[in-house]
């Protein structure tokens, strides 16, 4: 519930600095919600990433680009209509879903049973999330680690030393030298 209020505040606020701060609060609320829903590992990550690193990155960007959300008011109602229509369709879709916490929901009887029953005895590691992450779905995790790696490399390329070129009177700069060292 608090998340709803925070999200609305983020959207309405025109001060980018304040909205960046509010994203941190939003993430922290999400993390506490995850604890309530028994997902301790996820809550852990969300608290560290969302409330810590991501806010720092937003603030860092703001320090670089500074500025306010100048658009006074979104002019057309089209985005609003599209959002409401999509939301309505999705809400209609949830009507077919099993209710919250239902132990008979199909999601709990596909592979989850296997992981919970066998995971501990096959590996001797009691934290099933770790088991599934590193062992059963090792390929996935390898791929995701590579994504993090690639994203970090890309950011370094974008914001590396090549950027420190004099700008021409605030106008467009020349194409960036792709061979420039990072």
């Amino acid at each position: 519930m608090f998340m709803l209020a925070t999200a609305l505040a983020i959207v309405r606020l025109r001060n980018l600095f304040a909205s960046a701060m509010l994203t941190g609060i939003y993430s922290l609320l999400a993390a506490s919600l995850f604890v309530v829903m028994d997902a301790v590992d996820v809550a852990f990550t969300e608290a560290a990433v969302g409330a810590g690193i991501s806010m720092v990155l937003f603030l860092g960007t703001l320090a670089l680009v500074k500025g306010k959300d100048r658009a006074s008011r979104p002019k057309d109602v089209l985005p609003l209509i599209v959002a409401i229509a999509t939301g309505a369709v999705l809400l209609y879709g949830t009507l077919d879903m099993p209710s919250y916490g239902d132990p008979n929901a199909p999601i709990h009887h596909h592979v989850a049973d296997l992981y919970l029953d066998e995971g501990g005895s096959e590996t001797g590691v009691p934290n099933i999330v770790t088991v599934v992450l590193a062992s059963y779905r090792g390929y996935d995790t390898l791929g995701e680690t590579t994504v993090v790696f690639t994203a970090a490399i890309a950011v370094m390329l974008l914001l590396g030393r090549a950027r420190r070129r004099p700008r021409k009177n605030g106008k467009k700069i020349d194409a960036i030298d792709p061979e420039a060292p990072v």
Partner: peptide
């Protein structure tokens, strides 16, 4: 991370 909540992703962050 094997015994309680935690693991590489969290620790790194």
């Amino acid at each position: 991370g094997d015994f309680g909540p935690g693991g590489g992703f969290q620790a790194g962050v």
